[in-house]
Amino acid sequence: MSAVFLPAAFVLLLALVIGLALVMRAPARGDSLLVALLAATTGVAIILLLGEALGVRHAIDAALVFGLLAAVLGVAFVVRGWPPDERGHAEEERCR
């Protein structure tokens, strides 16, 4: 049963990497932060699954710290880190 956790962590990591690669090509600024949020949420899950697979005790604490500081990062971005979009006008999105 515990042999399933490492492949699960791999699947998550793969999904994250593909998401990272594809989203980071977009020029819009707000989307870039979504990538960081995605990395944080997925990272929490990957850490926990890895901890279970490898028998790392206290991986849970690392995941908790992850989650808490992802909140800090999100607020830091919105309040004091969101540069204006380069083109100077409203970001237009097109359906992919």
Binding site: G30, L33, L34, L37, T41, G67, L68, A70, A71, G74, V75, F77, V78, V79
Partner: peptide, 9 residues
């Protein structure tokens, strides 16, 4: 965190 940051963004 997600709910609040989602709203803030």
């Amino acid at each position: 965190a997600s709910a609040s940051v989602c709203y803030l963004i």
